[in-house]
Design a protein around this nucleic acid. Structure first.
Lengths: 206, 206
DNA sequence: ACAATCAGTGAACAATGTTTACTGAGCAAC
DNA sequence: GTTGCTCAGTAAACATTGTTCACTGATTGT
């Protein structure tokens, strides 16, 4: 699950070099994906941009998919950090959901290619499914906290899981539409997003 | 925009044969995409399955992308018909939105690969953007109709456009999560979907 | 100094999308 | 019925992809 590694200072110089070029490969890969999209991303072009031979990359990643997975994992970490950072500034659970959701949308707006990489790929791949499950669990915990504190009220089948699902769906939907359909149709999209998310949250707060 | 063609009976035999093989190509292409996903779809495999040479397909479609676009257009038409069929059974605008939304979700559930093809591809392509715009306009018209009839109430910035956007976002979000994340985690997803969509609709009905 | 490890090379391989010169069956015109 | 032409389909090539593998030479531990 986790690739446990000794801290940088405890590694031999060559191991550090290795890790460094691995990082450089990942960084350039991400940059290329951001610039020209995942669809046109090529191992050979990446090798060129790093001044390596295509085959050399296979000393670091077992396949193109493994490389892309690594980039994706980086993006997920970045997104999770960005959301967590916003959520931590909130005091009420409603604000956690609001700020977290808006952070999600804002990240998608600022990083459309990364968002595409994380959420719009072929159904059924192992790696990112796990990370999304983690995000879902965190979201669920916030909702359950809100319920425990009486800030969120459940009504029948509209329980904690349904509320969490509702929140994720609306946020994901707005983020997705934003990056695909309404690229820049209306200028006040952020305010509308906030308004809608607030309306959703009002639906389960007294 | 539209490729105007004479009805089948008015065409010469060879033209009919042409159109028929074109249709056969499209049909097989879609079947292959459904079975093995867009990512693994290959012109050569398609040619094999139809007992043609790869080059022959270029007499019918100028490129692989053009072929895929044609399949996508077929899917959009199918989806639009499916939704329209459901919407027509509704009397109130609320029910139009509810049934239309559920139809959208149900289509995504039954045709995950087609849905992926229509909505999860690289941002910015001409063809499907247009069709999505049409869908958005239809949705907007329903909302405006509801407002005119007093079945839907607007409050401030939560106007017709915002409501339509809200509906689309929640429906798209649920459909998308359904095909990627929650593949079959909970069995009562359809009921939860209906519940959530009803809650959203309640948010702008008196 | 020596041997060994191993990061990186270069060439090859298979599979992809696409182009192009060609061929031969079917159709219109005489 | 013969002729000639159009054009659907072919075969082979090309460029570009991901991936493999025998090799090599600098780095490294002994």
């Amino acid at each position: 699950m986790f690739t446990e590694q000794p801290p940088d200072s405890e590694r031999s110089p060559q191991a550090r070099r290795l890790a460094q070029t691995r990082e450089a490969i990942l960084q350039n890969a991400r940059q290329m994906i951001v610039m020209q999209g995942i669809e046109g991303f090529s191992i050979r072009a990446l090798a060129d941009s790093i001044d390596y031979t295509p085959g050399a990359l296979y000393k670091y990643f077992s396949s193109k998919e493994a490389l892309v997975d690594a980039v994706r994992a980086d993006c997920f970490e970045e997104l999770n950090n960005y959301i967590a950072q916003q959520v931590l500034t909130a005091v009420t659970t409603s604000d956690m959901l609001l700020l977290g959701g808006l952070a999600y949308i804002e990240y998608a707006r600022q990083h459309p290619q990364e968002y595409h990489l994380m959420f719009n790929m072929e159904p059924s791949q192992a790696t990112s499914g796990e990370q999304r499950a983690i995000a879902m669990r965190t979201l669920l915990q916030i909702v359950q906290l809100g319920i425990a504190q009486g800030q969120i009220v459940v009504q029948g089948a509209y329980d904690a899981a349904a509320i969490a699902y509702h929140c994720w769906a609306i946020v994901h939907g707005m983020a997705s539409l934003q990056t695909t359909v309404l690229l820049d149709e209306r200028h006040d999209l952020p305010e509308v997003n906030r308004l809608i998310l607030q309306k959703v949250i009002e639906g389960f707060t007294p």
